[in-house]
Design a protein around this nucleic acid. Structure first.
Length: 455
RNA sequence: GUACUAUUAGUUCAGUUGGUUAGAACGUCGGAUUGUGGUUCCGAAGGUCGUCAGUUCGAAUCUGACAUGGUACCCCA
């Protein structure tokens, strides 16, 4: 029988879970320190909720859930077949699937806010750590099931929120000891550039193309724009914008000369400058204004941010931005929000590559009691309770197995201390403690037992 | 959707122009050592060589199709 995990999904061994929880705990502790509240939403949403929020390509990457029961009535079979023949996959799937697995946590959150608007207090700061699913071809740093760790502030258009999220990003990666570059841009600036060219409605084409500047170079970006119907003159106008470099301040000044004549451009630059200044005042230095940062999600309207690990071949490990009207689609207009999302699985891969997990990550149980028989075992159970009452995790080996086997168990489990209570220790009530790292062994009075582990 | 690459023991891999009974390391289990793990020594178990078809006296090895994994493009972020 074929039995393995679905393509692009993975099992996690206990050691991997320790490492994953280290990441999750680091992130959620920072979130909590900033006053964010946890929520969860279901793995599946109505397709109606998900479709059309991530662009055409995004719709293709949605996992759809086949309706239960007799999902295709006889009289509908021909209609269904016709859609298939015409390659109208969307129309065909609509007939047999009404649910899908969530693609990210932001869109379900928007639905959540609309549904529960009377139960939450705005500005609402929520965090959410849950898996999402994308029917992508897996490759390095790309999975079909992966965890996002989102934090959003909705119901406030203050730029202080952007600053706080940058602070969170900075705190998390400093705690994880991962060197990163934070890239910042603003959708309003990109809109202004499009408007400058008189191509307001082609902003997506522009952003998709210039986003690739790093990867494919200036020549190919311009070529791609021309393929999309931009003229040589348009390209000549874009070129100097893409060539702008220097410090953040210099870049803002250079760009201001070109786009501040456009209202939205001026606004975008002001926002960007404000956020950069406030972040710098908080000691966050590693933020770069990156004109080519676009991010594909269509719902962003203001700040956009992306984080990449330095010296690791890996796509973005954190992303986010401001969306002014995401809840509007679900019937609650004028609700601005801004959020970020840490990609836990990619962060895991970076930490693994850089060897940045703490050394004691494999240690879970602190103390193992060796089992020498029934009466010694009973005595160990009492000692174990004493340790647990002192918040020390420990376990008693369940069988009176060979000592070698029990010791090996402690060793394999990375348990730092072993307690041996054989016949003589039992008689004298002086448990023997062995330090598995140094090999040292000492006998200790029962009354001093728990205290030994508390130093 | 396109391309490249791989698939042999639990894992990582070797396997000569196609030629007898397919090997190693690590891991597992047992023993040396019935109160001491991690080191050492000895031993054992473990494989339908991804599947199907073809070429051949003979296929892990050559050919084809399919399946699965990985990588890159597209795309996503």
């Amino acid at each position: 029988m074929e039995c393995k995990a679905v393509k692009g999904t993975r099992d996690f061994l206990p050691l991997q879970m320790q490492k994953r929880n280290y990441i999750f705990n680091t992130i959620l502790n920072v979130y909590r320190q900033h006053g964010f509240l946890q929520i969860e939403t279901p793995a599946m949403e109505n397709l109606q909720t998900l479709m059309g929020k991530y662009g055409d390509e995004g719709d293709k990457l949605l996992f759809k859930i086949l309706d239960s029961g007799m999902f295709l009535r006889e009289e509908k079979i021909e209609e269904f077949a016709n859609h298939i023949k015409a390659s109208e996959v969307n129309k065909a799937t609509k007939m047999i699937a009404e649910k899908g697995l969530r693609y990210d946590l932001t869109v379900p959150f928007a639905r959540f806010v609309v549904n529960h608007q009377n139960d939450i207090t705005f500005p609402f700061k929520r965090y959410q750590i849950q898996p999402v699913w994308r029917a992508d071809r897996p490759q390095k740093g790309r999975y079909r099931e992966f965890y996002q760790c989102d934090a959003d502030i909705i119901g406030s258009d203050s730029l202080m929120n952007e600053v706080e999220l940058l602070q969170i990003i900075s705190e998390v990666f400093s705690k994880l000891k991962l060197n990163v570059a934070i890239k910042l841009n603003n959708r309003k600036i990109l809109s202004a550039i499009a408007e400058c060219l008189g191509k307001k409605d082609q902003i997506t084409d522009i952003t998709v193309a210039i986003d690739k500047l790093d990867k494919i170079g200036m020549e190919n970006v311009l070529k791609e724009l021309q393929d999309k119907g931009f003229s040589v003159e348009d390209c000549e106008k874009i070129k100097p914008i893409l060539l702008i470099n220097g410090t953040n301040k210099e870049k803002i000044e250079s760009l201001a000369k070109i786009i501040s004549c456009i209202e939205v451009g001026k606004k975008g630059l002001e926002e960007l400058e404000y956020v950069l200044n406030k972040a710098n005042n908080l000691g966050i230095e590693n933020i770069d204004f990156d004109i080519t940062l676009a991010r594909g999600l269509n719902y962003y309207t203001g700040a956009i941010v992306e984080v990449k690990a330095l010296d690791v071949e890996m796509g973005s490990i954190t992303g986010g931005g401001r969306y002014d009207n995401l809840t509007g689609i679900f019937g609650l207009p004028n609700m601005s929000g801004v959020g970020i999302s840490f990609g836990a699985d990619r962060i895991y891969d970076c930490l693994e590559e850089k060897n940045l997990f703490p050394e004691d990550i494999a240690t879970t149980t602190q103390v193992l009691f060796i089992n020498f028989g029934e009466q010694e075992g009973d005595y160990c159970l009492k000692l174990a309770k004493q340790l647990r009452d002192n918040n020390i995790s420990c376990e008693v080996y369940p069988d009176c197995a060979k000592l070698k086997k029990q010791m090996k168990y402690a060793n394999d489990r990375n348990i730092p201390f072993v307690v041996l209570v054989g016949e003589s220790e039992f008689q004298t009530k002086t448990p023997q403690i062995k330090n598995m790292t140094t090999g040292e062994q000492i006998n200790i009075e029962e009354k001093d037992f728990a205290a030994y582990f508390l130093q």
